[in-house]
Nucleic acid binder design. Structure first.
Lengths: 194, 194
DNA sequence: ACCTGAACACCGTTCAAGT
DNA sequence: ACCTGAACACCGTTCAAGT
């Protein structure tokens, strides 16, 4: 397809992996074109062949967070699938605490985020919600889970022992479970408000 | 108290106000020591007399967000006070969309954040929760409200018309109201899980 | 096609000097 | 006490040049 020229010494994937490692160990501020280049043994200008600029680099990094975990097995009951999704996302936040907060500041309409969103919507529809109801529930649910994971990863709860925060999350899971149950069972009068 | 020397041309408050205006109109990236100085008609080095460095400047700015709204009147019923708090915070997010996301990434233990937190805890205790229960409920509630406000301010919902997002928030308010009601009324069996 | 060298406009921050 | 000028080490990014 393409005339070959000189063989590439680094790939776009190398650039992304090096940037991710720097972000994880040194924080977002340490992700610098020069730092990434140094780690790859190359000059900063070489990066621009594989990445259009720094904003593009960060975009790719943040999007990649959403492909780091597998979607829950489709044969699990819907409530377990939702729980699994929430826990996976929380683990990603712990693994990449400096990048993760950016996830809450991006449009929820990229291909990668759609993949996760559709999995959640499918589970919610299987629970008995209509399509529009499911999409609304997914927006609120993802906001809650991302908000908690960002808070935790960024250290907003740093004054509390981990066991307390763990129990906070358990609490959140139970409350969400109850709310969804109430939505699904028709005999509960509250469902009509949605 | 202090030997007077030369009269000051700018104050710390001038620096903060100028920085806030720049952040609101040009985004976080536009907040630069040189940009702030230019707006004040002074050289960048003059700022360091009133602010220890740029991190300190941003800290002060973010903390200031929490003093921009009045706490709800103490004679209102507890549920209206919580609702008022949530709406005030959401308005702050709209006013300062580029600074607001930083709020979710900071320890919730500064004097300014304590002021808001204590108001929420007081309302929750008045609702009938014990002290520890109230603090946990406040952590979760603030996470949910901040998460929603950040999402909104940062444009995560930009693909949906404002009316849909408005109804999302109304939905959130109702669900929270129902959960708190369930917690408070002893005859509901769910309360024991908390 | 891929990488480098040199260059540019910008950062934050310091230090000694002026008033 | 407050501000400035000059300076330093660092940014992101471009462009022409090498292989």
């Amino acid at each position: 397809m393409s005339g070959m020229g000189r063989p590439a010494r680094i790939s776009r994937d190398d650039v992304l992996r090096a940037s991710m490692a720097i972000a994880d160990s040194g924080g977002l501020g340490a992700v610098t074109m020069q730092a990434v280049a140094r780690r790859l043994g190359v000059t900063p200008m070489a990066l621009y062949r594989h990445v259009t600029n720094k904003a593009d680099l960060l975009d790719a990094l943040v999007e990649g967070l959403l492909t780091e975990f597998p979607l829950p097995a489709a044969d699990l009951p819907w409530d377990e699938r939702l729980r699994g999704l929430g826990r996976s996302i929380r683990e990603v936040a712990r693994r990449h605490p400096s990048l993760f907060p950016l996830l809450l500041q991006r449009p929820a309409a990229t291909p990668e985020s759609r993949r996760v969103r559709d999995a959640a919507c499918a589970a919610l529809e299987e629970a008995g919600l209509g399509a529009a109801q499911a999409r609304r529930a997914e927006r609120l649910l993802s906001t809650v889970v991302l908000g908690f994971a960002v808070s935790e990863a960024a250290g907003r709860f740093r004054d509390h022992p981990p066991s307390v925060i763990e129990e906070d999350f358990g609490c959140l899971e139970r409350v969400i479970g109850q709310v969804l149950e109430g939505l699904v069972r028709p005999q509960e009068r509250r469902a009509e408000h949605w």
